[in-house]
Structures are given as C-alpha cells and as structure tokens.
C-alpha cells in the first residue's frame, strides 16, 4: 500500500513539476521532438529498404532447364539432387508443355509461331527458390554440375548488385537510427540534467526529511517519461500524416524499384516505436541525471 502511495505521489509530482518548471520541460520536450523526427525518418527509410530487398529476394527464382528428351529417371534423379541442396527452399517442375501454354497466353505472336512447328521446341525445367541470395552463385554452380541439366538462368550480376547495395544502405540506415537514438538519449539526459541541477535544492530537502532514494528518484523518472511521451507526439503525427500523404503521392512506389510499405498498420508500429524510444530514453536520461545528486 505504501509503495502504491509513493508511486501515486511520484506520478502526481511529476505532472506538477513538468508544469512548474515549464520552460525547462519545454526545452526537453522540443529536444526530444526534434531528435525523434529524425529517428522516425530513419526508421521509415530503413523499413522500406528492408521491405524492398525482401520483395526482390522473394520474387527471385532460378530456372533450371533440362536437356532435351530427358528421361523420367533423370528427372527423378535431378529432383533428389535439388532436394539435397541446403540453400534450396523450394522447387517446382514445369514441363515444356506448361511453358508453351503459358507463353501462348502471354503473347499472340508467340502463339502463331509455335503453331507452325510440329514439335514443342521448349525444354522441361525446374523453378527453384533459394533461401540465401548471397550464396546463390554457389548454388547455381552446383545445379549446373548435375547430370541432365542444360542451362541455369537467373538475373546474374544485376540482382546481386541491387541486393548488396540495398543491404549496405540498410546497414547504414540502421547505424544512423542507433546513433540518433544515442544522441537523443544524450540530449534528453543533458536537458533533464539542467532541470535537475535547477532543483538540487529539492532533492537535498527530500534527502534531509527522510525520503528513501527510490522515492526521490521516482518523480524524476516519471517526469522523464512524461517529457519523452509528450516529445513523441509531434513526430508521431508527422510520421502518420507524412507517410500516408507520401504513399498516396507516389502511388505506393518509389522510382519504380522500391514498393513502399502499405501505410496501415506500418505507421502505427512506427508510432509505437517512437513512443517507446521517447519514454525509455526520457526515463533513463533523468535517472542518470538524478543519481549524481543522490550520493551522500
């Protein structure tokens, strides 16, 4: 009961002191707001790049053409060979007749040309999906060496370079996000430190009248929490409205290459992350600042 009362009093005092020390609280809130806007932009970029990379990777498949007139036995043999490759996620057999059928539907010209031929000139094939795109080259080399394989096709070179570029960009953005979070923590902690230096008298009196360390720290921790949460409101609004508008303006894709993530529920996840970052950084910032004044 006593603990609940102390927590209740701390929350009440935290709200009061945000109001009573308004100019410093406002400085902390603004500082949080600005850095969280940057964090939000970085998170949105990182998530979209990751999404684009994933989409490219998902759509990418290897087409394995079999030699002409491959026997059923060889096909079974190739199947078991493919199944034994650890990087192969899935494979589907696609006969030359299926290819023909698909192409007839796809192009009228092709349909006409094929009708002139007596036999189907296409090859039986396997459509293979891989787990790890980075070791695709090795996998393709291995498949080529299997008996009965004619050719193996995938977007050689181009796909790898696009994926690795995206990979690097994504890593850079993640580093930027982490750096921004650290900068936010540092800035908030410093601004709150100013507030607390201004109130060291209050902390001293609390100590002298017999307040335990935890009951001294709690109001400041809640204050940091409140500042962090209030500071995240504007970045959240900017993220939600900004991203929704951006998405509709760009019709869901960026330079024909990157498909943007659907705004809902993505923006809400980002909003949640921003609130959590704001609150945690605010709390730890003020805890760090108040701890210094508690040494007896």
């Amino acid at each position: 009961m006593k603990a609940i009362r102390i927590i209740g009093r701390s929350i009440r005092d935290a709200f009061k002191s945000v109001g009573r020390n308004f100019s410093l609280s406002f400085a902390s809130i603004m500082c949080t707001t600005i850095t969280l806007i940057l964090v939000a932009v970085a998170i949105v970029c990182a998530a979209n790049i990751e999404n684009a990379t994933k989409l490219i990777e998902d759509e990418l498949s290897v087409v394995v053409y079999l030699k002409k007139d491959t026997t059923e036995e060889t096909i079974e043999n190739i199947k078991s060979e493919l199944a034994s490759i650890s990087n192969v996620e899935d494979y589907v057999f696609k006969s030359k007749d299926e290819w023909k059928h698909e192409m007839e539907e796809y192009s009228e010209t092709f349909n006409t040309v094929l009708n002139y031929l007596d036999t189907n000139p296409l090859l039986d094939s396997f459509i293979v999906k891989v787990y790890d795109i980075n070791s695709m080259k090795d996998t393709v080399e291995y498949i080529r060496s299997i008996e009965g394989i004619d050719t193996v096709k995938y977007g050689e070179g181009m796909v790898e370079s696009v994926v690795s570029t995206f990979d690097i960009v994504e890593k850079v953005v993640v580093v930027v996000v982490i750096a921004l979070i650290l900068v936010t923590a540092f800035l908030i902690s410093n601004t709150i430190k100013l507030t607390i230096i201004n109130r060291r008298n209050e902390i001293e009196i609390m100590r002298l009248v017999g307040a335990s360390n935890i009951s001294i720290k709690l109001p400041f921790i809640f204050e940091g929490f409140i500042i962090g949460v209030i500071g995240s409101i504007i970045p959240i609004c900017i993220t939600i409205y900004g991203y929704v508008i951006l998405f509709s303006q760009l019709h869901g894709q960026f330079s024909n290459m990157i498909l943007l993530i659907e705004p809902y529920n993505f923006v809400f996840y980002v909003a949640l992350v921003l609130v959590i970052i704001g609150a945690i950084v605010g709390m730890f910032g003020s805890l760090k600042a108040v701890r210094k004044h508690l040494k007896i």
């Binding site: 006593k2 009951s215 001294i216």
Partner: peptide
C-alpha cells in the same frame, strides 16, 4: 512534503 516523502 516531509510526510509525503515517507509515504503517509
């Protein structure tokens, strides 16, 4: 304040 600090 002195009493609130001790959780009364």
């Amino acid at each position: 304040f002195a009493l609130e600090c001790v959780g009364m």
